[in-house]
Design a protein around this nucleic acid. Structure first.
Length: 432
DNA sequence: TTTTGAGTTGTTCGA
DNA sequence: GTCGAACAACTCAAA
């Protein structure tokens, strides 16, 4: 008997760690743990918990069809996983690697407990195409600039790294069961079941990906895949998407490379989850005006592109990528509010929230990240609107009072804010 | 070691 | 309307 522990890989098809477990063992028992150390910190209506619960329920049915009982637990995995492994006399626990600092700490604790029980803990690469030290500079150190990283990434890419792990193989290695255990209900775990907005579909539109480079910047149309949520929880395979990108659209593939890049940055520079990637930017004294932050959160800044984006986020848990850049630039440059405040707000609201990509994106916008926009590059929300939503279709969808007297006045004046941002950054970066 | 070219997504100003 | 330069000079990657 061995365990296969699902985490951010809520799928059976094309699952690297699951494949390894089945291939090398006779009796594989799949498990999942609703992690109280995470759940206890979430609001009780968090939509992502509903998403996970639904996907777990779906997985449970798929496993049941294969004659297997997918066992789902609720508790602290650093205690539960070794306990279950011990009780079932498992010789190993298989899983897919997770590179976030908290996940690494959790897995270290699990590894140590399992080691004491003489049980192996085996991780597979599944969440990214290239991980850890697979894409490095010639001198063996990690990249911090995207373009040369992406060149090396593409050079290294071949069909081996994009292969699909066949889910129909070695199915008799699943531990058979004639009975089915229960999944803890949302209610039992203290969570509500009310869904505010439908989740984006896992099915992707090939046409959208084929035209991605032409349409991705227009928030009023479906020009992006909207698969972030599914990539986050592994309900879709990154290898499958990378194959599509390779065939259909180089720009789309490049966005997937950004995802690997930010995962690698966080892995090699874990300080960047909390502090500026470039230490000199920690000298910036943010104005951090609560009142203005509230206006930004609520979508009441008086800048239509910013307000539309924030209201879309609040209503759906999603925001178009172009608009994410606009609202992030506005918060950090126009309002001079700490990027971490924005990052934290996105973490609460975005269904597709991913620590590495979110921190990377926010630091890019604030100018303090690796390969960031120079600080004097300040988005003008009005010209962004002109360029990417000229007919205000996106804006009117989320800000229906746009163009009427009831729409709020701008909370800061653009020209002043722009000049203030540039001189503020310049002053604090050069004060020694 | 030194040199060289390049660097996600922008804006504004003045010719 | 269009175009190039300034924004600010810096750091990274590779030869």
């Amino acid at each position: 008997m061995v365990l296969f522990w699902h985490r951010r890989d809520l799928r059976i098809h094309d699952n690297a760690g699951r494949y390894q477990a089945l291939k090398n063992n006779r009796e594989v028992q799949p498990i999942f743990v609703f992690d109280t150390t995470i759940l206890d910190r979430l609001p009780k209506n968090d939509q992502r918990v509903i998403f996970i619960h639904r996907e777990i329920t779906r997985l449970k049915k798929e496993y049941a069809k294969l004659g297997c009982d997918f066992r789902v637990f609720y508790g602290d995995p650093t205690k539960l996983v070794p306990q279950i492994a011990n009780e079932t006399k498992a010789s190993a626990v298989y899983t897919n690697r997770d590179y976030e600092p908290k996940a690494l700490a959790r897995d270290k604790a699990v590894f140590e407990s399992l080691e004491n029980l003489n049980i192996e803990f085996k991780g597979s690469k599944d969440h990214v195409i290239f991980e850890k030290n697979e894409v490095l500079k010639a001198d063996g150190t990690p990249y911090s600039v995207f373009t040369p990283y992406s060149r090396k990434w593409l050079e290294k890419l071949n069909s081996f790294y994009l292969r699909s792990y066949p889910n129909e193989k070695y199915l008799d290695s699943l531990h058979p069961s004639t009975t089915q255990s229960e999944i803890p209900s949302l209610k039992e775990m203290g969570f509500g079941e009310e869904l505010f907005h439908p989740f984006p579909s896992r099915e992707f539109d090939l046409e959208v990906i084929a035209l991605y480079d032409q349409k991705r910047d227009l928030p009023s149309i479906k020009g992006t895949s909207k698969l972030g949520l599914h990539l986050r929880f592994g309900t879709i395979s990154i290898r499958e998407l990378a194959r599509v990108g390779q065939k259909k659209n180089a720009t789309y593939l490049k966005e997937l490379i950004w995802r690997d890049f930010y995962q690698a940055i966080l892995y090699h520079f874990p300080h960047s989850a909390q502090n500026s990637f470039r230490p000199e930017y920690d000298q910036i004294e943010w104005l951090n005006e609560e009142h203005l932050f509230q206006l930004w959160c609520e979508g009441k800044t008086g800048y239509p592109m910013v307000d539309a984006g924030m209201r879309e986020l609040n209503a759906t848990g999603y925001m178009h990528n172009r608009v994410r850049m606009v609202v992030a630039s506005f918060l950090t440059k126009h309002l001079l509010i700490d990027w971490r405040w924005g990052e934290t707000y996105f973490a609460e609201k975005l269904l597709d929230y991913d620590l590495a990509s979110n921190v990377g994106g926010w630091q890019w916008a604030a100018g303090c990240g690796c390969d960031a926009a120079p600080y004097f590059r300040v988005f003008n929300p009005a010209s962004q609107q002109q360029k990417f939503d000229p007919e205000a279709r996106y804006i009117r969808k989320w800000v229906p009072e746009y163009g009427t007297p009831s729409y709020v006045q701008p909370c800061v004046e653009h020209k002043m804010a722009r000049e203030r941002a540039i001189s503020h950054y310049k002053y604090h970066l050069n004060k020694g």
